[in-house]
């Protein structure tokens, strides 16, 4: 059963990462695509809490870092999504009850995730991106993630609840 759960989670993360690079570029806003992996991590945080979400965030981030056509220093998205998973998990008891709180959580997570990634790039100089461009990309990323939340988040949360071991969702 544990193996089946791991398999489903692997498939979900793979699907999110692949759709992000292969499907969404056709409907991108100035090159910015919705971060599906981040939505999966937030859903994991809201259903299962910070530890589980941080692990999922690490795995999903690593998948983004390594799947082609990624060419940045590996580990940067992993770091960003670990932070996102942990922070989103800390607020889950407020966020899992109301839709508005969930949307705010996604917006905050998207802001934190994209910012951490951009900051790590600035620290490493990989590449040196002007602050102006960073500031224009982050709001678009947040907006797009929020736009996709009603379609992805409930679905992901339902799936993750069904994968929860030995416990009825409350």
């Amino acid at each position: 059963m544990a193996a089946a759960r791991a398999l489903v989670l692997t498939l979900v993360i793979t699907l999110a990462v692949v759709l992000q690079v292969a499907l969404f570029p056709y409907v991108s806003l100035g090159g910015v695509v919705p971060n599906l992996a981040l939505l999966v991590v937030v859903a994991a945080a809201l259903v299962r809490g910070p530890e589980f979400a941080a692990v999922i965030g690490f795995l999903a981030g690593l998948a983004i870092d390594l799947a082609p056509p990624a060419d940045h220093i590996a580990g940067r998205w992993a770091l960003a999504l670990v932070v996102v998973g942990y922070l989103a998990g800390r607020v889950r008891h407020d966020a899992r009850t109301s839709a508005l709180a969930a949307v705010v959580t996604v917006a905050a997570s998207s802001f934190v995730g994209t910012s951490v990634f951009a900051l790590s790039g600035m620290v490493l100089g990989d590449p040196t991106v002007p602050v102006g461009e960073t500031l224009s990309v982050i709001p678009t990323a947040v907006l797009y993630d929020v736009l996709l939340t009603p379609f992805v988040l409930p679905l992901m949360m339902r799936l993750l609840r069904r994968l929860e071991p030995h416990q009825v969702a409350y």
């Binding site: 992000q20 570029p25 695509v33 971060n35 056509p69 990624a70």
Partner: peptide, 14 residues
């Protein structure tokens, strides 16, 4: 077949 997202600040394709 795939484009790097603008959030990653690199312009690469597969």
């Amino acid at each position: 077949i795939a484009h790097g997202p603008a959030q990653s600040f690199t312009r690469t394709v597969t």
